[in-house]
């Protein structure tokens, strides 16, 4: 569905990343993990068509993203931003309706059909009762789910997420993860996500989601594969410069949930 071939990007003379290759198939979760400033967000911006690659190409359903209009891209690729500063206290339903923008003409407003879709996705994330609440008064987790609902309203096959659980407490974090698992299982959605929590990859793996992890460091993907093979103690040491243990917890259903425990920085 989405294929990245030999992608490089630089701001003026400053190289951000190069030689990045990957593909994401239907129903797959692709996690990009790496230290601060390794270029994860820049890579996502390129996937969204906000920045243009210096070299290489990004193919969205076999078409180069460069020649696809913003409206056309938004019908195939949705974006869930990091929690952001909220300017105007729009109601929750108004925010979700913005997900329909690509389907609404320049001089039109949302139709009853758009409203029906917005209500349907709000139900999917379990926020129907929040419909008329001001978005500025929601908790971090609720607001993140509203942004997820907005992306779902775009009715795309792929959703790109930038740190979907940043600033969330344990419960809100799990709510977001559970919602993602449910969506991938029920609708065959594909998700590309940048995260600072490699443990999420183990969470998805444990919920038998088709998942790949890419470790991003020194301007490229240093390893791509399943969480168990990529998120090793050695790899964590090499990309984050930390000593870490990967431990395993036996769950009630007899599966193993792996988790990373960061121990110390490498001197």
């Amino acid at each position: 569905m989405l294929e990245v071939i030999n992608a490089s990007f630089s701001y003026k003379r400053l190289d951000v990343f190069k030689n990045i290759n990957f593909r994401v198939n239907e129903g797959e979760v692709f996690c990009i993990v790496g230290p601060n400033g390794c270029g994860k967000t820049t890579l996502l911006d390129c996937l969204l068509g906000i920045l243009s690659l210096k070299q290489g190409e990004i193919l969205l359903n076999k078409r180069n993203i460069k020649i696809i209009s913003p409206a056309e891209t938004a019908k195939q690729l949705a974006y869930v931003p990091q929690l952001h500063e909220k300017t105007f206290p729009y109601s929750v339903i108004d925010i979700v309706l913005m997900g329909r923008a690509a389907h609404i003409g320049l001089f039109s407003a949302p139709s009853p059909r758009d409203v029906a879709i917005a209500e349907e996705v709000l139900e999917l994330v379990g926020l129907t009762s929040f419909k008329d609440r001001p978005y500025t008064q929601l908790s971090g987790g609720e607001a993140q789910l509203v942004l997820l609902a907005r992306a779902l309203a775009q009715k795309t096959k792929i959703i790109i997420m930038d740190e979907p659980t940043a600033h969330l407490d344990f419960k809100n974090e799990l709510t977001v993860l559970e919602t993602i698992v449910q969506l991938v299982n029920n609708t065959g959605l594909s998700i590309i996500m940048a995260t600072h929590f490699p443990n999420h990859a183990f969470y998805f793996e444990n919920n038998s989601i088709d998942i790949s992890v890419a470790l991003m460091s020194r301007m490229t993907f240093s390893a791509v594969g399943s969480p168990s093979e990529v998120l090793s103690e050695d790899n964590l040491k090499s990309i984050y410069s930390i000593n870490a243990r990967v431990v395993s917890h036996r769950m009630d259903n007899d599966s193993e949930l792996r988790q990373i425990i960061p121990i110390s920085t490498v001197a």
């Binding site: 913003p70 019908k75 690729l77 300017t87 320049l106 949302p110």
Partner: peptide, 23 residues
């Protein structure tokens, strides 16, 4: 008056508005 709904989307900032399909 004609373009008024687009102001909602634009008020999310350039990056989000673009990702929502707006030039």
């Amino acid at each position: 008056i004609a373009i008024r709904w687009r102001v909602n989307v634009l008020s999310m900032g350039d990056k989000e508005a673009r990702s929502l399909g707006i030039d």
